[in-house]
Nucleic acid binder design. Structure first.
Lengths: 349, 349
DNA sequence: TTGAAAGCGATACCAA
DNA sequence: TTGGTATCGCTTTCAA
């Protein structure tokens, strides 16, 4: 690596502080680290020297000996758009950052937006820049978990890990959530219920689809693959999927979308197609995010406690960083259906 | 700092690589750093050892000697909401990240959401975790620039720095942009033109307001402080300001808002008040973001090349990191008015 | 081309 | 309570 000659940082070292305060480096270090084994007078002397010189501990040196960096990375591997358009992430971050803050850990956000960048990010994380990694929205083929595991970097996922990967995680019961949504549609008297599923390589996508199928089967409704369409977790993805579904089965009277954003896309397509919601078609989303209350009609949606997921994940990660036991822990939170205007009992036929 | 006993990282060191390859640490280091002064055979041996052992260089150790970390921080100090709701930031990041990527620098995003967190973040940055800092949306009283300057950490701002701070920056000509907007309204035959200004402690806010005043004066229109209202750069801020303005002067026929989001808020208030846009009132926003084309009617807006700002800022920062000359550089980009449906020539009176 | 060895700045052990 | 010093993992002269 490059590194032009001697371009040392501003350069106040502990050595200089010690010299100025007339003590040894060891003692100065004790003051910096708030050790109780320092006399009051000396503590004052050193503190003044620190202030006079504007001393700031060099993290690299400290990290080298302690093995700790005092920072945690949150990694969001998404094609850039989603991080900012999906309200999921800010809520997750809000939940997590509170926990890290309380532990005086600096949260740094990494958002590789291409395979190449993801590669570099992996290097950054395994090189010891952070004490632990929190990641959300993982795709099935992402090599990151294995790489971090090998490098012994603590990792916690938000969302169930893909098959074959064992790692700590926090998730909501997506399967049960999806079932509740479909059961709600059935209770509304819907008989031709389709689903707009998330990407087939993401656990959330898979689980919500599984829940949908279970509920359909249990309700004794015929299973029909033409009632299932996949899409990205975006408004556009939802719209495109809805259009395909309508083309395949014109008699659809219920829609379960795997996210509110997708449901919003579906609503716009239904409106264009002249279907009234909820009179002709009832729609249920997932997330119960702000989006749910800004569509027209407002969305019935499966609520998931996102801030809480962030908190729990952060807590799990902090534990893992502290004890380094490599134990796998997981937390699953419950969901609930929040009813709004987009779903209603079918008017008597 | 804590640091439980010997909890060393996974622990493949260069020493171990050297041993396995049967060479000295120095030679192994040369291979890792792609030095040309290594024989082909030895290079192969060492590379195999690296692969076998899964060696990853320890960043802390390397940083300690080179003074470089290979990463750059982008700091957004906002009460959390704005980062995700304002399309400005994703665009800025997209522009900047391309440049950093090309230089193999890892971009880390820091978003302190309270004074306390901002304090910690300052510590993180001055402790040598990153080679340089890019920051946007700086408020006048933010102590960060001074702190970084003292610690000799390269810094580039997006947006003109507050008075009294000298630092490199990239900005658009906000003053001229605002003038063009107002001139456009005047050309539309508007005579009672108000402005929804940004926060008075932010340079963008100040500059756009100044441009507004200049244009009003030049057009020979009476200056009236009741035609100026301040607000946050949010939809709510814009709505509240518009409501106050209408209450103070019912005869308003032109609105210049300092951001599209604010203009969107203004549009909703105007609609509620029964004012037709653009027939009764013409509205011009600032940013020419996606928001501008999703309002109804679509917004006439001042375009600013945000991706380009991000690129230029990143370029400036990379330069500063490389030569460490502490020279202050700045780049100012031009704006242009993009006409849409929210502004139109007044129908003959 | 290769190796030996001197740091980089801080922590933590062992004596005093 | 204090100081001396080995050590962390790597880069980089300086000799060989």
């Amino acid at each position: 690596m490059v590194g032009s000659k001697r371009d040392r940082r501003s350069g106040v070292t502990l050595e200089m502080v010690a010299l100025r305060a007339g003590v040894s480096r060891a003692t100065a270090s004790r003051v910096v680290n708030c050790s109780p084994r320092v006399s009051a007078q000396i503590r004052l002397d050193v503190e003044r020297a620190i202030a006079d010189l504007g001393y700031v501990p060099n993290r690299a040196a400290r990290t080298l000996v302690t093995g700790r960096t005092g920072s945690i990375a949150v990694v969001i591997t998404e094609p850039s758009g989603r991080l900012f358009s999906d309200p999921f992430f800010p809520r997750l971050l809000r939940g997590a950052s509170g926990v890290f803050s309380a532990r005086d850990l600096q949260l740094v956000l990494l958002m590789p937006s291409s395979r190449e960048e993801a590669e570099r990010t992996g290097g950054y994380l395994t090189a010891g820049h952070v004490d632990g990694v929190l990641t959300a929205s993982l795709h099935g083929n992402d090599p990151l978990p294995a790489r971090l595991f090998k490098a012994d970097v603590p990792l916690v996922l938000v969302g169930r890990p893909p098959r074959g990967i064992s790692v700590s995680y926090v998730d909501v019961d997506n399967r049960q959530g999806a079932r509740s949504a479909v059961e709600h549609l059935v209770a509304c008297g819907r008989r031709v219920i389709c689903t707009i599923a998330g990407p087939a390589d993401m656990a959330v996508g898979i689980d919500r689809l599984a829940g949908y199928r279970e509920a359909i089967a249990e309700a004794g409704l015929p299973v029909d693959r033409r009632l299932e369409a996949y899409g990205e977790f975006t408004q556009e993805g939802g719209a495109a999927a809805m259009a395909r579904l309508l083309a395949a089965r014109a008699d659809i009277d219920g829609v379960f979308a795997a996210s509110d954003l997708m449901a919003a896309g579906a609503l716009s397509v239904l409106a264009e197609a002249g279907r009234r919601v909820p009179a002709d078609v009832s729609v249920v989303g997932f997330d119960d995010s702000l989006v749910a209350t800004s569509t027209s009609p407002q969305l019935t949606s499966v609520n998931q406690p996102i801030e809480e997921m962030g908190q729990e994940a952060a807590r799990l990660l902090v534990e893992a960083v502290d004890d380094r036991s490599r134990a796998i822990r997981s937390v699953t939170l419950a969901t609930s259906v929040v009813e709004r205007a987009s779903s209603a009992r079918r008017s008597s036929p």
